[in-house]
Design a protein around this nucleic acid. Structure first.
Lengths: 102, 102
DNA sequence: CGGTTTCATCGTAATTTTGCGATAAAAGGA
DNA sequence: TCCTTTTATCGCAAAATTACGATGAAACCG
């Protein structure tokens, strides 16, 4: 046996990587709950989400960043606060990808 | 401020937890690639998957367990080998859940 | 029965993720 | 301007995940 592992890298397309990142983002209870909350409450502020979750403000802010980086959520400055909402376009893309999975 | 965190637990339904577990399972490059491989090759053995991935046999076996626990994949003994395939029913459920997300 | 093939599990490092307090940064009001 | 409100980021500890070699277990073949 010469080499055990031929490549050492995964063979995934850019779309698959992007999809994977979204899956990973939603694969945590706090972030799943944030996502569902934003579905029900299209316009809300960070503090509203903090109130709903059993986590400290810093932790919630971190989870929001993960969702932002995945493209599932976007936050816009609204005075001293940040208004969060689902990123409709990317969520639609996500649903379409999952729909055509197999 | 009396108590900062009222509940210390997340408020997710059983369905949401199940969905979350599937998301988490697919939120890793190795498992995403295994899933895609099983989509293209409906019937295959553990060794086939090991050959495709840049990981040791033990690691692949572990990833397969995660996919099994999530219900996305099922493996049946086929002599000394294990034949893996997608769990059509659960994958369909997954797609339906994502389709109705928001 | 002994040897081979195929796979899962165990034990254990290394890495990543998670969670929090403390600390900035930015906007608005008195 | 000073103070409050609101949020993001930093630094660090704890927990979870990932990866691997080694070891079992189960089926098949000679």
């Amino acid at each position: 046996m010469d080499t055990i592992h031929p490549s050492k890298t995964y063979h995934l397309t850019a779309d698959e990587l992007r999809l994977m990142q979204m899956m990973k983002a939603l694969g945590h209870p706090a972030r799943m709950q944030i996502f569902r909350y934003l579905s029900a409450n299209p316009q809300c502020i960070t503090g509203d989400i903090v109130d709903v979750l059993p986590l400290a403000q810093a932790t919630v802010s971190q989870h929001l960043k993960v969702l932002r980086d995945a493209g599932l959520v976007c936050g816009t400055l609204e005075g001293p606060a940040t208004c969060y909402c689902l990123d409709g376009e990317n969520v639609a893309w996500f649903k379409a990808q999952v729909g055509g999975l197999f």
